[in-house]
Amino acid sequence: MTRDSRFLKFSAILGFIFLYAPIISLIVYSFNKSKLVTVWGGWSIKWYVELFNNQQIIDAAMVSLKVAFITATLSVILGVLAGYVLSRMGRFPGKMVVSGWITAPLIMPEVITGLSLLLLFVSMEKLLGWPSGRGITTVIIAHTTFCMAYVAVIVQSRLAQLDDSLEEAAMDLGAKPHSLFFLVTLPIISPAIISGWLLAFTLSLDDLVIASFVSGPGNSTLPMVIFSKIRFGVSPEVNALATIMILIVAIGVIAAMWQMRKKENVL
């Protein structure tokens, strides 16, 4: 089995077809005129028109975007601190525990995270009177908790790649700890911060299970509305929505790649 054998090439191609065929069919059928999702009735954009007239979806999208924006920002702040603490602050008591807590939310089944946070919020409300009821705030806290883990891991691996000679030089030249952090460390890890923010934003926008547990009535997020629509079958409006979301992400990722390649060429 050499690395460029036909078998490898064939299975890689099959693998990529497996990854992309469902997405492509979803996009194609969003332009289908027929209500029956699989019967082709000619090209049409009527599902897009219906999508933008669906107030329930628009409202949910607004809630989700708001939650995702705040979550991503909070996650970056906490995640950068956590990543920095774990890779640059040496030993401290409880380091093993904190590093375990940081990676665990990444693989914890969502039903457990969701249930446990909901029970925490309910108990806290009973004991402290806060948070009163559940809503956007509780969703943001829950999302931040698992998204900061992703940011921390990204930042940590970026810091591990860079040796700390720049930081040491700055320290030798008399930089105080906070100016060292803001003037030296932060600029070097800025690519990791940007990708961490984007990842946190996407993950928050996408989460169904945790939001279902911790959100209150009247604060349904977009995935919750989508889930209730598709639970019992396919809905062409959702195809249209999916196409828009997939295209935005694809354009974003391709733009980021292109930007990075340009930078590499300059350097």
């Binding site: 990854l19 992309y20 065929a21 469902p22 979803l26 989508i226 889930f227 598709i230 979301m245």
Partner: peptide
């Protein structure tokens, strides 16, 4: 990037795509 790209698109919508794919008249 082609491997990671689907990971950036909605998980829920990717599962949903398979519903359309595997249906009786899919």
């Amino acid at each position: 990037t082609l491997v990671i790209l689907p990971f950036w698109t909605s998980f829920l919508l990717r599962v949903y795509a398979w519903m359309g794919f595997l249906k009786k008249n899919g």
